[in-house]
């Protein structure tokens, strides 16, 4: 395409083709770590997609009846079973923690050490609450309802297998996130990101952009949860 052709295209296109055609960096002004996190998340999307597609395939083809989620995932409240109560709270908590994470990033870029630290900590606590509630849900399913990865009283045995595997894999992601959030909260409060202190392992300088990178991961984990929520609990 000649330059004049490009000029006819709507706004961003010209800039995009210039960036891609240029030297040094393809995504202008994007920090290495941030670019790396995006690509990692793309790869991780494929992991979760494989899990969910496998789940859909098996759910569609098993002959035994699939358990009815509204009943399995109901909580007894004052004698009435309320469907999806716990899950609704879990989802709410996790999505809220995305909000606090966004604020942490904002304060990070404003170099507001205190506020940033508190919001990172708050996000970590949100994540921890989520994991705690998930542990509660698992133990209810296991000890109260007798659901096992290899069998369950409600029908198709793959129900338990997929449930534990996928929520477990997601929960592992959340837990890793929580651990990093706590570590980062400490680093923020200590002022590492202001002084550019070097990392213990990596020997690289700390920078507030790290908060944004962690934030990307955290939002991704939330987004995945939305899909798991839809496919497991609402289908």
């Amino acid at each position: 395409m000649s330059d004049t052709d490009l000029d006819k295209l709507p706004g961003g296109f010209k800039g995009m083709s210039e960036d891609i055609g240029s030297d040094q960096t393809t995504f202008k002004g994007v920090n290495w770590g941030k670019a790396m996190m995006w690509i990692f998340l793309l790869s991780d999307t494929f992991v979760f997609s494989c899990f969910l597609i496998a789940y859909m395939k098996v759910r569609a083809s098993v002959v035994e009846p699939w358990p009815y989620p509204s009943e399995v995932f109901a909580l007894e409240m004052m004698g009435v079973p309320v469907p999806l109560l716990l899950i609704a709270i879990m989802t709410f908590v996790l999505i809220t923690s995305s909000g606090t994470m966004a604020l942490a990033v904002k304060y990070g870029y404003e170099k507001n050490r205190k506020m940033c630290g508190w919001f990172v900590l708050l996000t970590a606590i949100g994540g921890l609450t989520f994991v705690g509630m998930q542990a509660f849900e698992w133990s209810k399913l296991i000890f109260h309802d007798g659901v096992r990865p290899w069998a369950n009283p409600f029908g198709a045995e793959q129900f338990g297998a997929f449930f534990f595997m996928i929520t477990g894999f997601h929960g592992t992601h959340v837990s890793i996130g929580v651990i990093f959030l706590f570590i980062f909260a400490r680093k923020v409060f200590r002022g590492d990101f202001d002084t550019g202190k070097r990392g213990y392992f990596t020997t690289m300088k700390s920078d507030y952009v790290a908060i944004e990178i962690l934030g990307l991961y955290w939002h991704f984990v939330d987004l995945v949860w939305v899909f798991i929520f839809a496919f497991f609990y609402l289908w």
Binding site: I20, G21, D23, Q24, T25, T26, F27, W32, A35, M36
Partner: peptide, 14 residues
Amino acid sequence: VITILQARTRGMSL
């Protein structure tokens, strides 16, 4: 991937 996309030297276009 990131080295190729984001760390090329001056003049090294894709």
